[in-house]
């Protein structure tokens, strides 16, 4: 009986611990960012092989907290490449060190299908790419070359 009670207590404790841990990983993407640091990521998207600029490619920025084992995005923004195949994404409200994942993908795979591609950039708010006056970190030439695939 005592062993059974101990097992129940241990099981309940484990469940409580796992629940509290999962709560710590809840997506806080909708929470307003209150920092004063900003990032600007820009680049061009072209077709692999031909180097033709690709218009209308969806480029998505996900800002993730750094130094977290299983980070969830704190911000997600999407822009589309213009008729020159270029894009620029600006995002602000940051304060801590973050990692930015940038993904380029077809906006409409049914009509224009390209294999998606991603890059990650560690944003440390320091170094030659950081404008201390504007509190802005610039990531330039975040370029992609996408391989064409069969339309879905």
């Amino acid at each position: 009986m005592r062993k059974t009670i101990k097992k129940i207590i241990l099981s309940l404790s484990a469940a409580a611990i796992s629940t509290s841990c999962s709560l710590a990983l809840v997506n806080n993407e909708n929470e307003a960012l209150e920092g004063d640091h900003k990032i600007v990521i820009s680049g061009a998207v072209s077709e692999l092989g031909t180097n033709n600029p690709l218009q209308g490619i969806k480029v998505t920025l996900q800002a993730l907290p750094a130094n977290v084992l299983y980070p969830l995005p704190i911000l997600t923004l999407s822009e589309y490449t213009d008729n020159n195949g270029t894009y620029s994404i600006s995002a602000g409200g940051f304060s801590d060190v973050i990692t930015c994942k940038v993904t380029a993908a077809s906006a409409d795979p049914e009509t224009m299908s390209y294999a998606p591609a991603s890059q990650e950039h560690h944003i440390s708010w320091s170094g030659p790419s950081f404008d201390e006056e504007k509190l802005t970190f610039f990531v330039n030439d975040c370029n992609f070359q996408l391989a064409k695939t069969d339309a879905q």
């Binding site: 209308g56 969806k58 923004l77 999407s78 822009e79 589309y80 490449t81 213009d82 008729n83 906006a107």
Partner: peptide, 23 residues
Amino acid sequence: EHIQVTLDWGKYTNETVVFTSSE
């Protein structure tokens, strides 16, 4: 999101095509 915006400035330059962001 993803509205195609065509900007024509007349004789001064070629048309520019951009798209609205997720915002």
